[in-house]
Design a protein around this nucleic acid. Structure first.
Lengths: 214, 214, 214, 214
DNA sequence: TATGAATGAGGCTTCATTCAT
DNA sequence: CATGAATGAAGCCTCATTCAT
């Protein structure tokens, strides 16, 4: 329920990358089920038959994307900003570091928004995909956040609270922040004063100090 | 796609309700595309032909569900707790009221989780559904939250912040809180000390005061 | 390995009969694998989709034919001529009865030659089909022949020999007789003096008395 | 179909033999149509492309097997035992010679059972294959048997009967004898007292003297 | 000469939708 | 109104065959 997705040291061939890219594109536009292998083939610029040389099944393409996503996240999980925090040896303000992380993660999500969208949407209905997402990604993210939060508490920069609630607040806020930005840019016809840097400052401010007055 | 969704003051016939209920059930389990009309028919206990007497198209069933969702939310939008707040005349603590609202909304979501799941997952890929969701639900929710938040500011219980960031924080936190609870109950094999009441208190605490120490 | 072919009290619908007939026709001409369901559909005068309302799978069509064959044989297994012999109460000469049986069986085979051809050819390669053919048909036929032969021995009209060799001789002779007649009529361009009645007399003569002189 | 089968004095290259062997193996297991060229390639230990260097078409592989079969039979057709008979100069009993032939032929068939199976099964459906089988093999066998039988008649060891009926009896008996032995060994779970030598004696006994008492 | 990647036609099967009963 | 048989378009996938390397 988990290990049947083996994450190979996936050096993908050029063709495989082409196909996955095309699949990600079309899946994210029309959804997995509504996308035909013929469409993927056309977008990838290969014949339909070729797809099945590289992916036994249409569903295996999805799994391929999942593997990509996992690698992407895993590879990025121990990146500088987070290392810094875990090492906790800078003299930077906690909020400053937090901001770096948020920006870093936001970029990760934004740059791979389609990939996330495809995986999440299919995780809703495919048990095995869901299992992998939960075990490989969510539980890992939870662990990191918890670990980090714990450090903050020890450092005296955060107060003692149930970590799972803290998780919901932090991750939920960031997630919705990203999501809303994406949707607003699609739907809102009002021109936006898009000062993202300040926005993130506010977001962090709320995380640390809440919305309550003093 | 087909044509625009007109939200009738829909008094649904018994059969229509049966079908929508069955569709909601199966869609939420397998997804819209992966569900056949035959399955819906069987689960609803009607013939396949009957479905098409009430819904011109399979996609119209989905639209039917959307309409149901909208009515559900709209009907509940001016409910007592919110009224209280908007009237702002109680002597209750703001947090107390907030908690009531959260619990109320959480119940709404939990009781209709499948419906939400179906709509959200399809909104990801069907332009017209997405449009309706955004315009009828999200923008409305935004408006309400904004309005309420503004009151709090005026009352001096909240400090002045950009409302869209406040929205992300509040809605994101609550959303993730609900989502995580649902997922943990599915995947975590650790027995949970499920003290939801306290958890919500903490959630609100964080909203108002942040996670920062002092 | 045997019972998954359940022989229903197969009152076949008109459509099912049409499809099976068409399938038998095309299978026997081109073979099972080389026949497309589209061809069957066209020959049956129905749409391709219709086929799959009645037969879950292309292979189920074959199974359907097998069931037909079994019914055909089983229904015919206790027919008058054989009954007569088993009752053994006529004053007819054994050879006379034998001849009746052969003619009767030959007609059975000739009238359903295509059906036999299809089943036999597929039994060569499909394990489950082969199992059913062996258990339902061959072993049954063996039993009948053995039983009958034993009677002849008791009656003193046949001498004591190993029954399985007797089986090979009798069934093999008849089988090849039928087969050769069919093939000759296809390939031999010599006009045949087709005196089947006399031929059968000779065939039986050989069975009873061999080809040796005196 | 493609073109006529020319039976070259086929000295096959090593590769060709490998491919034909592999094809014979897989065809006999799964049937011609159900076997992919990729499977043949893998079993032959060559690449798929190589196959098509040696055989223009998948069907040409089958033809290649047919040629092999024909050579096999033709080469064996004038073998010592038969020569002996045709020369008719031994003092051995006719039955003795007959037995030798049967055993010899049986071995031929048994050793090349898969090849026979493949050819026969495809001859059922491929017109050109069938033609070759009939003209090159069956008519030739008929001729031999007829010739031999005629000699026996002249020698006084067999009585005068229509040769085509004699053919059916002899060939059918032997054929069924071999077939039944093969099937019984597959399906019968009863342990067999496999005294093949005696069995053949009985088979010949029946051929010469029939099953009738005295 | 040998390889195996690439192709695209075609096979089996599903399914939304229609319509006669 | 309700049914469910019929349809045929479209989907996923296989495979014989070609061809650049």
């Amino acid at each position: 329920m988990d290990e049947f997705i083996d994450i190979p040291n996936s050096k993908l061939s050029e063709k495989e990358k082409l196909i996955l890219k095309a699949a990600c594109e079309t899946f994210s536009e029309k959804g997995y089920n509504a996308t035909s292998t013929k469409e993927i083939a056309k977008m990838a610029g290969v014949s339909e038959g070729t797809i099945f040389r590289y992916f036994k099944t249409k569903n295996h393409i999805l799994k391929g994307l999942l593997v990509q996503l996992i690698e992407l996240v895993v590879e990025n999980i121990a990146l500088p900003p987070i290392e810094k925090i875990l090492q906790n040896e800078t003299n930077k303000d906690d909020k400053e570091i937090f901001k770096e992380i948020i920006i870093d993660r936001m970029n990760l999500v934004n740059n791979n928004f389609k990939l996330f969208k495809v995986i999440v949407s299919e995780a809703l209905f495919q048990e095995d995909i869901r299992g992998v997402v939960y075990n490989k990604l969510i539980s890992r993210a939870t662990f990191i956040i918890d670990d980090y939060y714990e450090k903050m508490v020890r450092n005296g920069t955060a107060r003692q609270l149930p970590s799972k609630i803290v998780f919901s607040s932090i991750v939920g806020s960031i997630f919705m922040f990203i999501l809303k930005r994406n949707m607003d840019s699609l739907y809102s016809n009002v021109e936006q004063d898009d000062n993202i840097d300040k926005d993130i400052d506010f977001l962090i401010d709320i995380m640390f100090n809440g919305i309550g007055s003093k």
